[in-house]
Design a binder for these strands. Structure first.
Length: 401
DNA sequence: AAATTTAGCAACCGCCCCATT
DNA sequence: CAATGGGGCGGTTGCTAAATT
């Protein structure tokens, strides 16, 4: 198709914004809302293109923006989400309230990426660069699995964001007039717009429900089946089901469909948390993780699961649908999931960030795997712990998990 | 103290998706 | 169904300040 650039018009100003321009834009949006960005500059008396105005607003002028140094928590979130989602800055930004995707992207590029590289970790794959040895024993496939999961999760995320966007659009159609800022999160999740009037509609949001479920999951340890497909029939994304049962036998949750070639892939995490508070697998289960490979695992064509065999901390991960058995890895009888050493690296990375102290669980590491291989199961456990931690500590309006 | 290099960040660019016509 | 427009997203650039030589 091809289309003319929005700033093609001669006479439009580019480059840094002056305080006067900021003031004009701010005043206009506060009074009228942004409305059509393209039409805004003329109405606001700005010699800028609409796109530039939108960027200036969403990255700088918006009232609900936090600026300044990133906290350790934020760093950790970025690193972990980047490992999961890649350069999906807007998705990552939804987990960092008041931070813009642009800011996160910049922070990644200027700080975190370099720090990873310095430590010999590939910032793209989050794997050690000298990974040749590992790849020979299946590590690369494991990473591919994580990538696969991340792709799947990304697709779901997008669909959920779309759903939320639609729901917000419906509610904002009239709220827009009432809320002069008129800001809707770029990802559609609304997570960054905590100060806007969107709050009452949150209960309609699939991500909110998802998150609520996780909250319960992490705080009560009850059996909770969450299936985002059930939250909206028009949700076209793959679905996730997370079930936790206290003292329940390990189980494979049956997903929707039959796992046929055209069915939606589904991951189910079925875990029984030894901790009734956080859903985080406690240290007491440590040895069981290490012996995970000796415990039950079954592999069938369309459904794969492993059971850790923990007496207090059971986790089953099952995958159905078009994923082939090859997409999962049985390695010496051990099912590997994802990049098992990631947490170790993350921990190292964060430890490397100078004089800051680590405060959260998942950072209790004296396991400096640091690219040397480390203990797969220990790292695996910590990786998922950290993800659970992340989820658990995420803002309630986060669209993910 | 001046010149050069490096780091940080705001903003731009081009592509893409989706809704509307 | 195709064309078009609006807006979102990720990659990149270029300016400025800080650090180094």
């Amino acid at each position: 198709m091809g289309r003319s650039p929005c700033c093609e018009k001669v006479g439009l100003k580019k480059g840094p914004w002056t305080p006067e321009e900021d003031q004009k834009l701010l005043a206009y949006i506060e009074e009228h809302g942004h409305g059509s960005w393209r039409a805004l500059p003329a109405k606001a008396g700005l010699q800028r293109c609409g796109k530039s105005c939108r960027l200036r607003w969403s990255n700088y002028l918006r009232p609900d923006i936090k600026r300044g140094k990133f906290s350790l928590q934020e760093e950790q979130t970025i690193i972990q989400l980047h490992a999961l989602l890649g350069n999906r800055w807007s998705a990552i930004a939804t987990h960092l309230p008041k931070r813009t995707d642009n800011e996160i992207k910049n922070y990644w590029n200027t700080h975190l990426k370099k720090r990873l590289a310095k430590m010999g970790i590939d910032p793209v794959t989050h794997k050690p660069k000298n990974d040749a040895l590992l790849s020979s024993d299946g590590q690369s496939k494991n990473t591919a699995n994580l990538s696969h999961m991340a792709q799947w999760e990304s697709a779901r995320l997008e669909a959920e964001a779309r759903l939320v966007r639609e729901s917000k659009l419906r509610s904002h159609s009239f709220q827009h007039q009432l809320s002069p800022t008129g800001y809707v999160s770029r990802s559609g999740s609304g997570s960054a717009s905590a100060s806007t009037s969107a709050q009452p509609q949150r209960s309609l949001d699939a991500p909110k429900a998802w998150n609520d479920g996780w909250s319960k999951l992490c705080t009560e340890g009850n059996i909770i089946g969450l299936n985002t497909a059930g939250l909206g029939a028009d949700l076209e994304s793959p679905t996730s089901t997370v079930t936790v049962s206290e003292n329940a036998p390990p189980q494979i949750m049956n997903s929707s469909g039959t796992g046929g070639q055209n069915s939606i892939p589904m991951i189910e995490l079925v875990g029984t948390s030894g901790s009734s508070e956080t859903g985080i697998i406690k240290e007491e289960g440590e040895h069981n993780w290490k012996t995970l490979g000796n415990s039950n695992h079954h592999l069938s064509e369309n459904s794969v699961s492993f059971t850790s065999g923990l007496h207090h901390s059971d986790m089953t991960i099952s995958m159905e649908g078009p994923w082939t058995p090859e997409s999962l890895r049985l390695n010496s009888g051990h099912l590997q999931i994802g990049n098992v050493m990631e947490e170790g690296f993350t921990t190292l990375l964060l430890s490397d960030s100078g004089d800051r102290n680590l405060t959260d669980s998942g950072k209790d590491s004296d396991h400096n795997s640091g690219g040397s291989g480390g203990d797969y199961y220990e790292d695996n456990k910590n990786y998922w712990n950290s993800i659970l931690n992340l989820v658990n500590s995420s803002p309630t309006d986060s669209p993910m998990f």
